[in-house]
Amino acid sequence: MAQYKGAASEAGRAMQLMKKREREREQLEQLKQKIAEDNMVKSNIDKKFSAHYDAVEQELKSSTVGLVTLNDMKAKQEALVKEREKQLAKKEQSKELQLKLEKQKEKKRKEEQKRKIASLSFNPDEGEEEEEEEEEEETEEEICIPAKKKKLGKNPDVDTSFLPDRDREEEENRLREELRQEWERKQEKIKSEEIEITFSYWDGSGHRKTVKMKKGNTIQQFLQRALEVLRKDFSELRSAGVEHLMYIKEDLIIPHHHSFYDFIVTKARGKSGPLFNFDVHDDIRLVNDATVEKDESHAGKVVLRSWYEKNKHIFPASRWEPYDPEKKWDKYTIR
């Protein structure tokens, strides 16, 4: 083979191409060999299927002498084919009969062996059955009599309170559940208690009203009740709904989803007084320590949102801000 003279990269590329061609040549040879083998198999199969028809053709040639019409030729051919098929069917039947006879002989031989075994004094089948029955009885006894686990006792002098104890944990869980249910009953009782809510409808001046609500009621439910009371006296509220009203308590705009119970339990505070008192004391001081609880509060204000949007730059609306439960008021202030 002539050597390639040139760059090393070109020489490597030439070697790769030569190897690739060699592989392709080998694959082509393998493919040719496979095709030849397939053709051999097909030819053998064709020979097997054509044997029947070759025999018919041979008989047809031997039985036909001279000129014969086409119809006679077809009739003879059909007759020979039928005859050949009958012969093949007879051969198959004879093979099947032979197989049946062999099976019957084998069956008779086995029966003869069984009779000989039965004539002996020892019957292995009965012995096996007895052994199986004994084993079944033993397994039933084992199932019926479970092994008793020995429970080790505890030393009463050793402190085991720090160890996990299923009985103790179950008892603690039961007590927790009882306490939880008792606490929920008490809270429901508190929520069902009635309180008197003093509020003022504010449209630039105050119009004080009073309604009775339950501690568990929400601000939305309170505003609905207040709206029913105020509609008789204020025409602008006749077409208004709860969503058009705001509740202002201690200069904080209270969201509708909060309940009076929430403020009572948490002892929440506002900018100018406690949020958990809903009656009125007008003598609240200008500056007060919020850490010391005082029974002093302002009447909450019920305001139309439209009025607030028009007058939020004017006192007292300029002091109002949304209620934030995370925000703490250390001092009560009022201007």
Rank of each mutant, 00 (worst) to 15 (best):
Thr69His: 08
Asp295Leu: 07
Ser239His: 09
His298Val: 01
Ile334Arg: 02
Leu245Thr: 01
Ser63Ile: 11
Gly216Lys: 02
Lys32Trp: 12
Ile219Phe: 03
Asn277Pro: 02
Val211Pro: 00
Leu237Pro: 01
Asp295Gln: 11
Arg109Tyr: 04
Lys34Glu: 14
Ala51Cys: 05
Glu140Met: 14
Glu182Ile: 14
Lys82Pro: 00
Trp202Asp: 01
Glu193Asn: 10
Glu177Asn: 14
Thr160Trp: 04
Phe315Ser: 14
Tyr308Asn: 00
Asp262Arg: 02
Asn155Ser: 10
Gly206Asp: 06
Ile45Trp: 06
Ile143Arg: 12
Lys294Glu: 05
Ala89Asp: 11
Lys212Phe: 07
Arg180Ala: 13
Phe162Ser: 09
Glu135Lys: 10
Gln224Thr: 15
Lys186Thr: 07
Val41Thr: 14
Ile195Asn: 02
Gly206Ser: 12
Ile254Gln: 01
Thr160Phe: 10
Phe199Gln: 02
Lys42Tyr: 05
Ser94Ala: 15
Glu228Phe: 06
Phe49Cys: 03
Leu286Glu: 14
Pro146Glu: 07
Thr291Met: 08
Asp125Met: 10
Asp203Glu: 10
Lys110Trp: 09
Glu188Tyr: 13
Asn217Ile: 05
Met213Phe: 12
Phe199Cys: 01
Ile143Gly: 03
Ala14Phe: 04
Gly300Arg: 00
Glu133His: 12
Leu31Asn: 09
Glu196Tyr: 05
Trp320Gly: 00
Lys249Ile: 01
His207Ile: 03
Lys105Val: 06
Glu92Gly: 08
Val292Leu: 12
Ala226Pro: 00
Gln58Pro: 01
Phe278Asn: 02
Lys151Pro: 00
Thr198Ile: 05
Ile145Gln: 10
Arg238Tyr: 03
Ala268Met: 01
Glu293Asn: 07
Arg180Lys: 15
Glu141Ile: 12
Pro124Gln: 12
Gly6Asp: 03
Glu136Cys: 07
Glu83Phe: 11
Tyr332Met: 02
Ile334Trp: 01
Glu142Ser: 08
Leu163Arg: 11
Leu223Trp: 00
Leu88Met: 14
Ser121Ile: 05
Asn71Gln: 09
Lys328Gln: 15
Arg335Met: 15
Lys209His: 06
Met246Asn: 00
Phe276Glu: 02
Glu96Arg: 15
Ala2Leu: 04
Asp125Cys: 08
Gly153Arg: 05
Lys301Cys: 02
Val65Met: 05
Val292Ala: 07
His244Trp: 03
Ile45Cys: 06
Gln113Cys: 03
Lys154Pro: 00
Val287Gly: 03
Ala290Phe: 04
Ala89Arg: 11
His257Trp: 07
Glu10Met: 04
Asp157Pro: 02
Glu296Arg: 01
Lys151Tyr: 08
Ile314Cys: 12
Glu85His: 13
Ser272His: 00
Arg176Asp: 10
Gln98Asp: 14
Ala147Ile: 06
